[in-house]
Design a protein around this nucleic acid. Sequence first.
DNA 1: GATTTTGGTTCCACATCATGGAACATCGGG
DNA 2: CCCGATGTTCCATGATGTGGAACCAAAATC
Lengths: 255, 255
Amino acid sequence: MGEPARGTQAVDRAMRLVATVVRADEPMAFADLFAECGLAKSTTSRLLTALERTELLERDDNGCYVAGPLFWLYAARHDPWDELVRLARPTMEQVGADTRETVNLAVTRGDRVVQVGQVDTQYMLGTRDWTQVEVPAHCSALGKVLYAYRCLPVPRGPLERLTPRSVTDGAALDRQLRQVLRRGWAITVDELEVGLCGVAVPVRGWGGDVIAALGVSGPTPRLEDRIEDIGRLLNDRAGQLTALLDRRTRKEGVA
Amino acid sequence: MGEPARGTQAVDRAMRLVATVVRADEPMAFADLFAECGLAKSTTSRLLTALERTELLERDDNGCYVAGPLFWLYAARHDPWDELVRLARPTMEQVGADTRETVNLAVTRGDRVVQVGQVDTQYMLGTRDWTQVEVPAHCSALGKVLYAYRCLPVPRGPLERLTPRSVTDGAALDRQLRQVLRRGWAITVDELEVGLCGVAVPVRGWGGDVIAALGVSGPTPRLEDRIEDIGRLLNDRAGQLTALLDRRTRKEGVA
DNA sequence: GATTTTGGTTCCACATCATGGAACATCGGG
DNA sequence: CCCGATGTTCCATGATGTGGAACCAAAATC
């Protein structure tokens, strides 16, 4: 095989077992694992027993192997988004360097929109740190993206007016959302705060689902003429991010 | 050491490294790991490299080891509560057998209360499946428990009236919540629906924090006389569940 | 109820693979 | 530039993991 793997046969094999179980994401019978990874039956058994003892794997009621306590512990302590944020950082910094404006990443939590990551503007005047802050979705570009791609339910009923230019009419919002789908980016100009302008695009994950929104925001005068360019730039970068996410979670080839 | 561990030295050692990193829940420098687990420097290095190759661990920008892609993948696919539900199932079934009524498990998601698990009543008449359904917290026993133990913010402002007996006054709710803390269980009688009665208690996790609510509900006529008994029973079972959770996430002794 | 089949664990002689000391890189810092 | 301090690679050695076969258990079949 490509990888030489010096002096770690046992560990490598054990890890292949773990990876197989975790990636399968469903209970795997001994026989499946045995077949899948082509080791001697006795070796497979011994390794699996060791993995069970060390709490990496566990057996369910049917004796099938599933991810063990160590994985739960990790899941219990980490937002699923933690890693998205980490992986997205380079991309966001890239965008920050390109635009010199504040860059934001937002996801849905329950039916709210929450900013989970931010890279600050390089200008003096700019968006302050909004990490972990909920934003009124209908007034923000990030929120509009998440609405448009059905990451959270579009509110019926009247919408809050935050500035004279806020969209408060459901039908008008619908029209905007359709436009977002058509051209691939959402904007907000003076709708959340007077003088604040934002552009955002969807970030897609594993299988093409939209899992987050990536946006740029700053003073309207600096941004409004560049909206199209920024929209295209963001889409570009979001695509790269998707590719990155993909690579991280996909399995390497087997002999 | 207690465990003999025949023929799996390498794997055992590697897993000890993984467990150390994941449990620590913060980047660990090579030196720390090396010290922590008392292996030869070269051995430590070789094992860590293997773990990194196999995506169980990863190095951050400082070269410190952190949980790797396999853990993210797991976290991204599993609600933190999945395991709670799985582990709680036997306990809930126990309660179901004891009371013959519907048993529910609820947690907070964002600032809503969501039912994540249910065991059905053995009577014909009973609570239908509410899994994944949001419940108006101030009218449900589960919700009151989560309010009382500060798992979600107690709403100010007026509360929705769902039945003539719903508590709609903030001060009245506060009084009830204080009572919940005092005696350890919450009740709702005809407050959510006329004829529906519920009892619930807190479920504590690792370090004593309340992480969920466990409750029983059914027709008022069948339950109202048994509320005290059920409250005590639930507390008992919730305690067992906590012990169970504890055991699953705690580390076995080191030499 | 006896017998075969399927599925998994334990045993053990063998040699392969992990081991750890020492040599070797790498990097900061004085 | 020359030092520690920290981490990685080498390599002779033997302890350790290996896999075939025997063994055991449970389910399926007769």
